[in-house]
Amino acid sequence: MSVMSANSSANPAIAVENLVKVYKTGTAVAGISFALQPGTITGLLGGNGAGKTTTIAMIMGLVSPTAGTVSVLGKRMPQDRYQVLHRMNFESPYVEMPHRLTIRQNLDVFARLYGVQNAKARIAQLAQELDLADILDRPAGKLSAGQKTRVSLAKALINNPEVLLLDEPTASLDPDTADWIRGRLEHLRDTQGVTMLIASHNMAEVERLCRRVIIMKKGSIVDDDGPAQLLARYGRSNMEEVFLDVARGTGIAEGA
């Protein structure tokens, strides 16, 4: 089993070093390190309570680390967050927007908060690209789960971020829409060099999108490699089986 330490590259988009978070209730993150190269998509896997959400929250500056450091695009979080927050964004179906505001109003507010130039055109562009044009003037509280996810993605893309953190980006979506979203994320990576960190429980999604997978358990990184390498090492045919091996502690990696 290989647990990678911080990547040696000089300019990673996200660099996490010896990161620790201890809450009153226990240790959520127990000294993890990794570095993500610009223009890559990395999967962050782990069962409930593995520390994924806390890790992402520390990368966003939403939670202060107990020890260790996080930097995004060369800026330390949360100390220097205001120098970089306009260059990054976050999408999660579990973070909502005011229900009584229409989608257009919500996106308009976020466009202004992020200093988006020509906000009207940007909203129109996102509405077209994410098939929101027909529902732009509908209150955010009256959307289907799939529509909510697309609106949430539109909010996350409003500032054309260089770093995008995604928490289960295709949760609650039908297979067709989920596939379409994945295609968009790949395209963003390939054409605009967006760096993405995806926390997901959808193993097929991780296999398709991610060139690298970091697996966490009880606050620590227990494996970190490409999907193909993980499959080979665990002797499994898909990532779901690898995930179960790690979660249940039944996996014995060949050559470990």
Partner: peptide
């Protein structure tokens, strides 16, 4: 789905404006 199926439909928008200090634009947003 009624969405554009060509991912190339994405075009690069202008970068956001960075306001380093207190911004009335964000207040009024």
């Amino acid at each position: 789905m009624n969405m554009q199926n060509d991912p190339a439909a994405f075009s690069a928008p202008l970068p956001p404006i960075f306001h380093p200090g207190f911004s009335w634009m964000r207040v009024f947003a």
